[in-house]
């Protein structure tokens, strides 16, 4: 049976606890209050030093022109205006969004389909391990193999030629390269999200599906009325994870489209690569200000998207 727990009921619990805390004056509570700082402070200092400080420093650097050493020159919002006017940034940002939304849609669709197929499959734990495998292998290794697979004389084109296609597509040509990269990322991520969603689906009591079978529900109806609502929270978390991972996509592109001494072509850049190349291009004075501005924009976008996703996906919690 599923029971809806109203939001209001959940909200009262912490309130009650808070009131109790404030009212308490016993020796235990006082002691606990004294110990609050010594316990929280070390963790907070570490957090401040290694997470908050770099974020604040990044925001600060984004308002300057700086070569990474030497004096910093205050330029205000100029890095941001320059960046948004830069066609290469617009391409990079467009690629990031394409990956985020286009790649995300495909990844989640595939994950749902796989989840539904694997749910009833015999030996599904083996199948699950197999589809999770691409996620264990480092992205760098996969991207390099991916390159060999898709290049002009690669495995794929050799296979296509052997079945009679004389002119197979130029997968790695500049205009197709980002699409192939997206395909690689989708392939790598699908197993990961399928595994998480399957873990949630496994918790759904089988009798609900039996119920569906008795009522004559088809696969889509089972998915729509049982699987989706009962794994909604987990899907929400997956959406947040995907957003963060997609916005940070970096090493796959660098390894697949670049080489030891050369950056990938600008048509494959994402916002992260844009930030990286602003500082670590093989030549040129490092532009820490621009890189930081790009990082701040990415961070802001991730923040907004995560909040939006959480809001959009908020539902009454179901207990079953």
């Amino acid at each position: 049976m599923t029971t809806a727990v109203p939001d209001a009921a959940r909200a009262t619990a912490p309130t009650r606890r808070r009131t109790a805390g404030r009212a308490a004056v016993g020796p235990f509570a006082a002691h606990r209050k004294r110990l609050y700082l010594p316990f929280v402070l070390p963790a907070f200092l570490l957090y401040a030093a290694f997470l908050l400080a770099p974020v604040v420093a990044t925001a600060w650097i984004s308002l300057h022109a700086w070569a990474g050493a030497g004096p910093m020159e205050w330029v205000g919002a100029e890095n941001y205006t320059r960046m948004f006017l830069d066609p290469v940034f617009r391409t990079s940002f467009g690629n990031t969004l394409l990956l985020l939304f286009g790649g995300g849609t495909v990844t989640f669709l595939l994950s749902f389909v796989l989840t539904m197929l694997l749910r009833d499959l015999a030996g599904r734990s083996t199948a699950r391990s197999v589809i999770f495998f691409p996620n264990i292998v480092p992205a760098l290794v996969i991207s390099i193999l991916w390159g060999f697979l898709f290049q002009a004389d690669g495995l794929l084109n050799s296979a296509l030629r052997s079945i009679g296609i004389a002119h197979p597509p130029a997968w790695l040509a500049e205009e197709n390269q980002f699409k192939v990269i997206m395909l690689g990322i989708i392939w790598m991520s699908t197993g990961y999200y399928t595994t998480i969603i399957m873990a949630a689906v496994d918790r759904i009591p089988p009798y609900l599906y039996e119920d569906c079978a008795l009522a004559g529900a088809n696969a889509w109806q089972r998915f729509r009325h049982v699987t989706l609502p009962l794994s909604w929270d987990v899907i929400g978390i997956c959406a947040v994870l995907w957003t963060i991972n997609a916005m940070k996509t970096f090493e796959f592109i660098l390894a697949m489209a670049g080489s030891a001494s050369s950056m990938p072509s600008t048509s494959t850049w994402t916002a992260s690569l844009y930030a990286y190349t602003s500082v670590f291009a093989p030549t040129g004075v490092p532009q820490y200000g621009i890189a930081a501005a790009s990082a701040v924009v990415t961070l802001a976008l991730v923040g907004v998207l995560v909040v939006l996703i959480r809001r959009l996906m908020r539902r009454e919690a179901l207990e079953f």
């Binding site: 200092l45 957090y47 401040a48 030093a49 908050l52 400080a53 770099p54 604040v56 420093a57 600060w60």
Partner: peptide
């Protein structure tokens, strides 16, 4: 924490 972060950021 914020003050500390700012100070560290500036020091960096």
């Amino acid at each position: 924490g914020l003050a500390g972060a700012l100070a560290l950021g500036l020091a960096a």
